[in-house]
Design a protein around this nucleic acid. Structure first.
Lengths: 346, 346
DNA sequence: TGCTATCCCGAAACCGCTTTCGGAATCAAC
DNA sequence: GTTGATTCCGAAAGCGGTTTCGGGATAGCA
């Protein structure tokens, strides 16, 4: 049943040409006559010839594929994020006919080992990393190996590699400012674990937002939580059940924000009226929370596409430091951020 | 900077052995002395040797990778689905050290071409397909090529290939029955486009559920909609604004159900009280809709894992028909399905 | 000691494609 | 009609592994 796979040798014999000639014809070399190129092309589609990628990549030394390293510990709620980014990446790679690998990992050591294998196995020509830590060994590893890579996010020392990032600080600053303009002054911050560099940046944005508004930084209304709904919920619970609860929450992810909304609901509070909430990510699901979630959005499909383009450029020889893109998040106004109530809800 | 990649030749020279011997030692052949195996293994980790996958796969004829073909036109809301399945797949493959490719496509023709390329390029040893159509050319293509594959879902003629599926008919039957037990008799169905085979099956389940309950099938309360929130919303709008609106909705996906919830909210109706809604998929965000969504759940990570195991078995030579798994979905009781109100809400 | 069986390893072919190099044939120019 | 430049293709050497085959060395046994 399995019709034998047809190789370049078959094709060459069929055309009474040499394998080398066929190969050069297929790959657009100049030293092949137009007539021959046409014959080869035609016969190739006729016989359904597709070059064996393993052989091709072995010969050329180019893997014609890249890997996306999926961040560990990500909430399943946040997975549209991953999925959309993959789509964007694939779009970029497809234009060249390259393939996309994904790599999950169970632990940090596992991840290091898998990356090492990706680098040395020759299966991919480059990798894209996500959510760098403040000090990220994966990045060091890739740099030391001289292997092409781009990072979705920056880490502490980001001058000499390629990254694509949202201006986290500015985004949170914007969110805080928005709440301040709505009259809020007691604004809580739900941060992410600080080994993530973006968490650090967002915290900075929170601080600078307060400062711009002339508000004091009060660490008692800052919670550090994982990027999960439950974590957001318990963080909000802490704050809401305290003596002098905040009137607004700025969160580090939509998933956290969803948890905050749940905590409010539990307590009979209405988001956007009694307490304001701003999320981060712009997940589509935010349209359907009750009330719909105001959030800072970053378009993931486009991110993926740009990451792909950057990585390809670097593989082609561009200097990594030459490809650094900083985007800004957009404030998506929905209904969870409203004006401060005259009298508090207590 | 890029420290030269170390090959089997380097390793062999270092050990004063032949490449062939090193290879056999690494791959556990019996004709290598224990001492030599030990020496080789040790030197391999010491020098950081990893075999070049392209060369290896070229020589063995096994790609040591499989591809997941991402369904086109899927709602971005439904993407946790994809992401979780990928995770499960990767878990299965990782146990063997195999890699996972993903392949998106823009159109049906594009998809066919990409699958053709996957088959002939030798880059993967098998593929997993999702959401088969009633008559699915991709499946025919793979069968004709004699290429290993598994399908997440069944199509009309599914006896001679490998599939993993949820009993769609039973699941919807269960949902309908649940609503009937709550007193509902005018139960609308939001179906999926019928070129999907699961859509057909779910419609059958709806009919059989009604029949079991002694209710008549009324096609005026059956809507066919895409698996998206907007589609669910407009489907529900049609029904709710009609003369004799249903008191309950059974949906073909959670995304549709969320749209239905939105339609209800717009009309001042409360899900679970005024009108009941049951979704399908068990996506995590269903916990956070308002009210939380009652739904038929299927565990995606496990699906991915099992699909991976099945595919590997087939690649190893098992007969595809030997690997067919039918699971049943679980009714997850949350809050959108409640008893029929004594008096209608009008 | 001699003969066979076993244990190990080297040698070499091969997987399918790319790419460099060299040269025969055609062409242009004098 | 010789020369030099072009055009186009064949030949062959890899790319980095795997796997089959054969045989030297050692062991087992008579």
């Amino acid at each position: 049943m399995s019709t034998k796979r047809i190789t370049i040798k078959d094709l060459a014999r069929h055309l009474e040409l040499t394998e080398g000639t066929v190969s050069r014809a297929m790959n657009g070399y100049a030293d092949i006559s137009a007539r021959t190129v046409e014959r080869v092309r035609h016969a190739a589609v006729e016989l359904g010839y597709k070059p064996n990628q393993n052989a091709r990549c072995l010969a050329t030394g180019e893997a014609e594929a890249v890997a996306y390293v999926i961040p560990q510990n990500h909430s399943s709620l946040a997975e549209p994020f991953v999925s959309q980014l993959l789509r964007g990446l694939d779009e970029s790679l497809s234009r060249r006919g390259w393939d996309l690998l994904v790599s999950h990992s169970r632990s940090a050591e596992d991840e290091a080992e898998k990356i090492q294998r990706l680098v040395t196995s020759g299966r991919v020509s480059g990798v894209v990393l996500t959510r760098p830590f403040k000090h990220d060994n994966r990045i060091k590893l890739l740099q030391k190996a001289g292997f092409p890579f781009v990072v979705h996010g920056r880490c502490s020392a980001c001058s000499d590699y390629s990254w694509y990032d949202i201006d986290n600080e500015l985004a949170i600053h914007t969110a805080v400012t928005h709440l301040v303009e709505l009259g809020h002054s007691r604004i809580a911050f739900v941060g992410a674990p600080l080994y993530y560099n973006f968490a650090f940046q967002r915290l900075e944005g929170y601080k600078s937002g307060l400062q711009t508004a002339g508000l004091d930084y009060d660490e008692t209304i800052v919670e550090i939580a994982e990027l999960k709904d439950e974590a957001g919920e318990s963080a909000a619970a802490n704050q809401l059940d305290a003596n002098h609860p905040p009137t607004a929450f700025v969160c580090s992810s939509d998933t956290q924000a969803i948890g905050v909304l749940a905590a409010l609901r539990t307590r009979g509070l209405t988001a956007g009226k009694d307490v304001s909430v701003i999320g981060y990510d712009g997940l589509r699901f935010g349209r359907h929370t009750n009330p719909p979630l105001t959030t800072m959005a970053q378009p993931q499909v486009q991110s993926g596409r740009e990451l792909g383009d950057m990585l390809l450029a670097i593989i082609d020889g561009d200097s990594p430091a030459q490809h650094q893109i900083l985007k800004r998040a957009e404030l998506v106004l929905r209904s969870t951020a409203g004006p401060l109530r005259d009298r508090n809800y207590h």
